[in-house]
Simulated scan of single mutants.
Amino acid sequence: MPPIKHQVVSPSAGISCHAWNADKSMLALCANDNRLQIYEGCNSPSFASWRLAHVLEEHDLVISGISWSPVTNKIVTCSHDRNAFVWSYDAAQAKWNPILCALMLTRAALDVHWSPSGTKFACSSGAKTIAVSRLDTSQGSDWYVSKLIKGHKSTVQKVAWHPNGLVLATACTDFKCRVVSAVVEEVDTNPDPRPFGTVKPFGEAYHQFSCGGWVTAVAWSPSGSILAYAGQDSTIHFVRFDPSGAVSEQSVRYALLPVSSLAFLSDKAVVGGGHDMNPLVFTANSSGQWSFLRRLDEKSTGPAKAEGAVSSMSAARAMFQAKTTRGQASSGGAGKDLWTQHANAIVGIEGMGRAGDPTCSKLSTCGLDGRLVVWEIPTLDIDMQALGL
């Protein structure tokens, strides 16, 4: 069974980010503008059955991050306008109500994620800082207040919460991935520091890891014992945190374009999506050594086309003529030779398993081609045992 591909928005617009609700029946996305679009009926495999239920327009600039808490059913969005909004659904009025969050950022907000508990969220930015926000009801009014994590030397592109909800991993363009404390005393009443030994004060770093290029993506495994971060130099790095406190790191270089988003399927497999327009799968063997396994989307090897074989000389001549006359790499028109599900860079990957489960066998990817692709891993011709599924 091939992946399910939905052309949600125009290819000229593209999708900048997306997020699912708890039961995956609703989808929130941004079509590279300032509007949050919420679809209903998304558990249907036919896009014709989906319904655009809400269009929310509080932001002034492009929405760069969306996170939908499976615990509270609240949505948080961040934007290049340096603001974040938390959206709560009012069933009586059938509408989403926004609360503006004071992020205190001086540059664009880039990525946002709810903590596993849904009591706080973290937002990365171009201001070399991360805003960690929580709901404050002490003054008799509901609004979100923020504390800033500093110490980064350049833009923080991505953030990822450890499953314990106390620690953040950050992807920064200063060629560093950092693991920092994000403990907020007002909401983290019983902190569990495992596997980091002790609970450090807010903003203090546990570890710092180097990369040969910008760090473009970061993710934690379901157990929280493995951290993966990817670099612009087409590398992916795996850091293992043992219960004893020992930390080991392995780097994997692959001969493809770099990835800009990561999602774990299990503690033995991670999927990365980016400029290659095709999700890449990395797995660990029995001894814990990671390697590149394959592309998630593989080219079908069907029979030859009916129009017949063409000599290599004729094919080369047609290609150069197309480039000089139409500016295309193929005489057949733009996109005709693409066999991948995506026709442009993948900018987001979201696991579609239940929150807290140790494995995830379904995920979605969105891209600058305006497509949303749903991947049912067991239906693909792939070794499930190697994926730990």
Rank of each mutant, 00 (worst) to 15 (best):
L280Q: 13
G231C: 10
F238D: 12
L293C: 08
Q250W: 11
L256S: 09
A230V: 02
F241M: 11
S221D: 10
K268T: 11
D242Y: 14
T301L: 08
D242H: 13
T301Q: 13
L280V: 01
R240N: 14
S260R: 05
Y254Q: 02
R294Q: 10
H237L: 04
Q250E: 13
M277Q: 06
S234A: 14
V239G: 12
Q289T: 15
F241D: 10
S248M: 11
V270P: 13
V247H: 12
A263K: 11
Y229G: 07
R240W: 09
S300Y: 09
A304C: 01
K268Q: 15
L262S: 14
D233Y: 06
G302N: 00
S300D: 08
F292C: 05
Q232N: 08
A263V: 15
F292P: 11
P303D: 00
V259G: 13
P243R: 07
S223M: 00
S234W: 05
F238E: 09
S266V: 08
H237I: 08
G288K: 07
S260H: 12
T283V: 15
G273C: 02
M277A: 05
T235W: 05
G274C: 00
V247N: 10
L257T: 06
D276M: 01
L265K: 02
I236T: 10
P222H: 13
A304I: 03
V247M: 08
T301F: 07
G231F: 05
G302Q: 00
D276G: 06
Q232T: 06
Y254N: 02
T235I: 03
G231D: 06
A269E: 03
A219M: 01
P243K: 07
P258H: 07
D297S: 09
H237C: 15
S287P: 07
A230I: 02
E298L: 02
S244R: 07
L293V: 05
K305I: 02
P222K: 01
A284R: 09
S234M: 03
G302R: 00
D242K: 13
L257I: 02
W214P: 04
L262K: 12
L280W: 02
H275G: 01
L293D: 11
S223I: 01
Q289M: 15
P243D: 14
A255N: 06
T216K: 01
G245H: 04
R295S: 05
L257Y: 09
F241R: 09
Q232H: 11
H275N: 03
E249R: 10
T283G: 14
P258Y: 05
V218I: 01
S291P: 10
S291K: 13
S261H: 15
A306T: 12
A269G: 15
D233S: 13
A255H: 05
P279Q: 01
W220H: 11
